[in-house]
Each structure stands twice: as structure tokens, then as C-alpha cells.
Nucleic acid binder design. Sequence first.
DNA 1: TTCTGCTCCTGAGGGC
DNA 2: TGCCCTCAGGAGCAGA
Length: 288
Amino acid sequence: MPELPEVETVRDGLARWAVGRTITSVQVNNLRSVRRHLAGPEDLAARLAGQRLESAERRGKFLWLVLPADLALVVHLGMSGQVLVQPPDAPDEKHLHVRFSLEPADLELRFVDQRTFGGVLLDQTIDGVPSTVAHIARDPLDPLFDDALFVKRLRARNSAVKRCLLDQTLVSGIGNIYADEALWRARVHGERLGAALTRAQAVDLLAQVRDVLGEAITAGGTSFDALYVNVNGQSGYFDRSLNAYGREGRPCGRCGAPIRRTAFMNRSSFWCPSCQRPPRVQRHAGLG
DNA sequence: TTCTGCTCCTGAGGGC
DNA sequence: TGCCCTCAGGAGCAGA
């Protein structure tokens, strides 16, 4: 599933292969993929035609191609979105929803999305950030990320720490996989309250988040199936380095205890019952 | 203001 | 073989 490392891999691919080219036309095959462009698909196509792609930027899981006049083509991959750079004569993908023809015409951009949680839109930027992304916090790999502010805000939350990690207005770029991995590395149970963490624990958790995200970027992201690929259609290999996520029943790499899986926020959490002791008082909501 | 739970969506996989 | 059900989860929203 696309989290920060996967989106960064895609951004890097766009910077290499798409930046410097000009959009000549836009073909929308699925209206749901442009639903966040409120003016409609015709407006999107008309305003993008002739626009030069100046750079590829990212904040958390949002990425955007910078256009002239403070405009940006914003892309969110959702759960299954892909941005592919393909020759125009390559066969269409089954879930090809938006096609961006480019000049030079030897390559085109394709937005492909099986589950259609993602989408694209044209947006105005303010200080270089699209207005639809302005509410998203900086990610931990951003040089301007404020560690002290994050620790302060995390420790003020009366909410499960895993939910805090998934809150993109607190810290961006972390999804279910890397939240579980960082919590495992920090030996913190996801149901612990943010307010129950010591300052040292919060600082260490942030460090583990940084480590796991950085290692995943180096590996090209995490792929369990064909739902995440880079702009050339290739999968990452960080799934081979996972210690908790998807390892239910398999021994913890530290202590050997079988990894547990519990439901949380309509998804799964994977944790070690020995290394990550759950809080004594179970809350009504949260893990388990 | 903070927090929780629900909804959207499609395809794979399992059970019958 | 075909049908039905469950599961996967990012982000936004409603309601408490």
C-alpha cells in the first residue's frame, strides 16, 4: 500500500522521467478518479493542456507536479493508485483512469487505480504547497519537521499512539504498515495513549519511524502484490525486512514470541505480545 | 476542540 | 462452477 516510501519512489521517478515535458492532452476514463477536481473533467483537461511540468514535489503521501503560475497537478495514490510513465503504444492497463499525453511524445503519464481511493486534481499553490495539502503535517524526513513540536503534541493526545501515527495532521507519511513496524522497533504497544508515553519514549518512537521510512525508501518501498509499483512498473522489496506487519503467528525476531494480529480502526495491527506490552486498562476503542 | 467509528471501493481468496 | 462473504486500508466526515 502506498505510504511515504512508496510515494517518494514514485515522485523520484516522475522527477526523472516526466519533469521538463509538457502536457498536450488529458483523457479521463473514470470520473471517480477526478472527483476531487470540483470543476469537472473537462475543466481539468482544458486547464492542463499546454502546461509544462516544472518539478515533482511531495508531502507525506501526497505528491504533486508543479506547473507555471502557482498551479499544481496533485496526485494521491490512495490504496492502490499507480502513476506510470509508459510509451503511448503500450497496452492500456485494466484500471487506467486518466491518461496525460506529453510532449516530447515518446512517453505518457498514466494514473491507474484498482480501488479508486486515489485521484488527481488541479490546485492552486500557496507558498509552494497545494491548498488541498495545506492541512497535512510535514513528514519526519522533511528537513523542516519540528521534532519537539511533534513530541509535545503526541504526548498531549488522549488517543492510541498508533492512531496518532496515522493522523496525517500530526505527522504525515505513515500508514498501517510502517506504523506497526515503528511501534515494534520502539517496543511500544499501539494502544498506549500518546499522553502515557514518556518524553524519551516519544523521541525514540520518532527515531524508529525515521529509520523504518528511510530503509523502506532505500528498498524502493513495500510490495505485497501488483498494487504498488514505481513509475516503471517495478515492485519494491522492503516487505522482506518487515518484523511485525503481516507476520501473524510467526516468531518475533527479538524474543521468538508469536506475533499477534488484532483489529484496529477497521484494519489490522500486528504486534509482539512480549516486546510490546499492552496497557493494563483496555479502552473501549483501539487495539483488540 | 478532541476523539471515535463509519464509509467509500474492487479484487483476491476461502467456504459451501 | 458459481455464489456469497470477508478482508485489505487512506482520508474525510459525522456525531458524541
